[in-house]
Amino acid sequence: MTRRPGERGSATLFAVGCLALLLLLGSALGVVAAMVRAHRTAQAAADLAALAGATTVGDGDPCAAAAGIAERNGARVLDCAVRGREVRVVSEAPGPRWLGQVADLSAEARAGPG
């Protein structure tokens, strides 16, 4: 195979372009994985906080119990509502910070009899 003078180094440019594309794709996938993890954290914290609140309905402050459990699970309670013996909790977990964007994710759960 003969080389023409104008094509010298074109494989290097192609390789650098492919490498840049792979780096961008890997970064995007990393951000998506971090967002999924943050949502799972928020959902688990909301579930556990609602259960903790529902168990303390007659004995104390359900929202304080829910907030304490959410904090221990890496989230914070945005909203807590008690209706009878049912507790509804909305929690938020910090998400990834990428290129100056804030992606905190929230989840909702309810617990109580029936």
Rank of each mutant, 00 (worst) to 15 (best):
Ala20Ser: 15
Gly17Asp: 06
Arg85Pro: 09
Arg4Gln: 04
Arg97Asp: 11
Ile69Pro: 02
Gly26Ser: 08
Leu48Glu: 07
Val87Cys: 01
Glu108Met: 05
Ser27Phe: 07
Leu29Lys: 00
Ala34Glu: 13
Ser106Asp: 15
Ala15Asp: 07
Glu7Pro: 01
Cys18Glu: 01
Ala103Glu: 08
Ala70Cys: 06
Asp59Lys: 00
Gly9Thr: 06
Ala20Thr: 15
Thr41Met: 07
Arg85Thr: 12
Ala11Trp: 07
Ala45Asn: 06
Val102Ile: 12
Ala81Met: 05
Leu13Trp: 09
Gly114Asp: 14
Pro96Leu: 08
Ala70Ile: 00
Ala34Trp: 09
Gly6Asp: 13
Gly95Leu: 06
Gly100Asn: 08
Ala28Gly: 14
Phe14Trp: 12
Arg37Ala: 13
Gly17Gln: 03
Ala20Asn: 05
Ala46Thr: 01
Val77Ala: 11
Ala75Asp: 03
Ile69Gln: 00
Met1Tyr: 08
Val90Pro: 00
Ser106Glu: 15
Val102Cys: 07
Ala70Pro: 00
Thr41Gln: 11
Val32Ala: 12
Ala65Glu: 14
Gly84Ser: 12
Arg88Asn: 06
Gly58Leu: 14
Gly9His: 04
Pro62Lys: 06
Glu71Gln: 14
Ala15Thr: 08
Ala28His: 06
Glu86Pro: 01
Gly53Ser: 02
Glu86Arg: 14
Leu48Ile: 03
Asn73Thr: 10
Val102Gly: 04
Leu23Thr: 15
Met35Leu: 13
Gly17Met: 12
Val57Leu: 11
Ala42Asn: 03
Gln101Val: 13
Ser10His: 11
Val89Gln: 04
Pro62Val: 10
Ala45Tyr: 01
Arg76Phe: 08
Ser10Asp: 00
Arg8Cys: 02
Ala111Asp: 01
Ala45Glu: 02
Thr56Ser: 14
Arg4Ser: 09
Pro94His: 14
Gly60Leu: 04
Gly26Gln: 00
Pro94Lys: 10
Leu21Val: 12
Gly53Thr: 00
Gly6Asn: 07
Ala93Tyr: 07
Ala28Pro: 09
Thr56Met: 06
Arg76Thr: 15
Thr12Ser: 10
Leu29Tyr: 02
Ala66Asn: 00
Cys18Asp: 04
Ala38His: 02
Thr12Val: 04
Ala45His: 04
Ala54Cys: 12
Ala103Gly: 07
Ala109Val: 11
Ala33Gly: 14
Ala20Met: 15
Cys18Gly: 11
Pro96Tyr: 05
Asp59His: 03
Leu99Gly: 15
Gly17Asn: 10
Gly68Thr: 11
Leu24Thr: 14
Ala33Thr: 11
Gly30Ile: 07
Arg40Glu: 12
Leu19Gly: 14
Asp47Gln: 08
Gly26Pro: 00
Leu19Ile: 10
Arg3Asp: 11
Arg97Val: 12
Ser106Phe: 09
Met1Ile: 10
Arg110Glu: 11
Leu78His: 01
Ser91Cys: 14
Arg40Cys: 09
Cys18Phe: 14
Arg3Gln: 06
Met1Ser: 10
Cys63Asn: 05
Ala81Glu: 10
Gly6His: 08
Pro113Thr: 09
Leu99Gln: 13
Val82Arg: 15
Gly26Cys: 02
